[in-house]
């Protein structure tokens, strides 16, 4: 089974204070570290596990600037055979534009595949749309929130998708298809610095996004960036550690959950 897996380099903003620049024109990411999108880490792992068992190859593809080579090296270190970078300096906020770029790339370069994996969403824009749009414009079956792959046959797969409240549904999908992989589907393998260094010796192919122009479809535009509206907010406990912890225990007592 040949699997294309899309992997994105994203800003790791979990513990960073983000500042908006130029009166809302941009978010300042100049001091923020970057990493592989968490969901893509799970998809690469899932793809590699499948080919380790069933045979076939995994090709990791990334859209982004030259720095995105980093997530391709990482995917190769995890077990992908090839890494393709579709180089684009402009950040494409519109998932529709990204999906159509991928469609044109796959068609023009005649990239063979049985299944395409994307992450459910990326940590930065949280759009969660590239897989779904791609499935539709390729005319292929699609499922998102894939939390388990139970069986793989020549012409179909049995998967489980996550619903709300701990419920899942089991679904049969015809192959070829597009799947968006949910975090927690597996335990991604550890990637060592040595492994990445070794992966650097595998040649990655670079393509230019401009060579795969999309037809003009209606899109969305970003007007500006804003900070979230402040709600009530918490009463902040202050002082030395033992003072704050004493206050915390006081609240627990007052609420009657701790004597």
């Amino acid at each position: 089974m040949n699997i294309l897996v899309f992997t994105k380099r994203v800003a790791a903003t979990q513990e960073e204070e983000l500042r908006i620049r130029d009166e809302g024109a941009a978010v300042d990411l100049s001091k923020v570290p970057f990493k592989i999108n968490d969901w893509d880490n799970y998809s690469v792992e899932e793809a590699v596990r499948i080919v380790e068992k069933e045979g076939g190859t995994v090709t990791a593809i990334s859209i982004g600037d030259a720095e995105s080579d980093e997530v391709l090296r990482r995917a190769i270190a995890m077990g992908a055979k090839d890494g393709f970078l579709i180089e684009s300096d402009a950040v494409m906020h519109d998932p529709g534009a990204r999906s159509r770029l991928i469609l044109n790339f796959i068609k023009k370069e005649n990239v063979p595949f049985d299944v395409i994996f994307t992450g459910v969403q990326s940590e930065d824009d949280q759009f969660g749309c590239v897989g779904g749009i791609l499935g539709a414009i390729l005319g292929l079956p699609y499922s998102s929130m894939v939390i388990g792959i139970d069986a793989i046959e020549k012409d179909h797969m049995i998967i489980r998708r996550e619903l709300e409240g701990g419920l899942q549904e089991r679904v049969k999908l015809a192959v070829p298809c597009v799947l968006s992989i949910q975090s927690g589907i597996n335990e991604p393998r550890y990637v060592s610095i040595m492994g990445i260094r070794k992966a650097s010796k595998v040649e990655r192919k670079v393509f230019k996004a401009a060579d795969y122009p999309a037809e003009n479809a209606p899109g969305i535009e970003i007007v500006r960036w804003t900070y979230p509206a402040k709600k009530g907010g918490a009463t902040m406990l202050a002082g030395e550690l033992d003072v704050m912890c004493g206050q915390l225990l006081g609240i627990l007592k007052e609420k009657g959950v701790y004597q």
Partner: peptide
């Protein structure tokens, strides 16, 4: 879960933009 797959799929199918 279902909105997150039906919305983009519909957007792609009908050639409409999408905001999630």
């Amino acid at each position: 879960s279902s909105g997150m797959e039906c919305a983009p799929y519909s957007a792609g199918f009908f050639g409409l933009p999408v905001i999630t």
